[in-house]
Amino acid sequence: MNLKVENVSYRLGKKVLLDNVSLSLQERERVAIIGPNGSGKSTLLRLICGLNKPTQGEVLLAGRCVHRYPRRRLAQSLAFVQQKANTEDIVRAEEAVSLGRTPWIKPFEAWSEYHQGFVEKALLQVDMQDKRHQYWHTLSGGEQQRLHIARALAQNTPFIVMDEPTNHLDIKQQLGVLSLIHHIERTMLVAVHDLNHAMRFDRVIVLKDGGVVAQGAPETLITEALIKEVFEVESRVIKSMGFASNVQLIA
């Protein structure tokens, strides 16, 4: 199953948020999208997940436009982890994760071992089995984010799309979520804020002003010149054998 974005533009009123963007994802590929604020990262992810409809062009999943999919069918192929999703309701960690089974369960179907199996596996993967009975509002931001990822895992889709999943987290939790992402064996498309995080992906797509500026393997793509051009800051990219390159920003 592959995913293709073909000449997609998105306008809101007169403002052009995305301008003729094309890209494609291969199976099991981990792709990061980087770009400054307002470059269209979130908008692009929303279009890919079918939450908004492109003004022009189309997003094709397995050769079929995502807007032609029934919502349920689409959610069986593609899971989305939002930047921040919260609730005021009194729910337990495990209940939030079991929502991931929604596209697979019929309206009056009883909850079964089969569905519980996916929830268990997902909780294990994000290392939250111990806190499964804890209430949502008593968990830290990092734990909540891990549960959102677990929810996406329980959804058991070939594709997972994430919008800055490490936002609002402290450094340790950021690294935790990041290494989690690297142990998930699905096709992943992740909007990333931190360039050093992007270094750990298979491929990086750079967005600026609603268009794709460059894409390629992070080691060769992310250079001081590119960072200067896209983010308008001076930097130093430090390469060391056996480790991912490190981007140092110069104030």
Binding site: C49, L51, R72, A75, A79, F80, Q82, A85, A96, T102
Partner: peptide, 20 residues
């Protein structure tokens, strides 16, 4: 009722777990 459960994290989240 399962669709209503899905709105726990808002309507975008509901949409991405398969609710029309």
């Amino acid at each position: 009722s399962r669709a209503l459960d899905a709105f726990l994290f808002g309507s975008d989240a509901a949409a991405s777990i398969g609710i029309a």
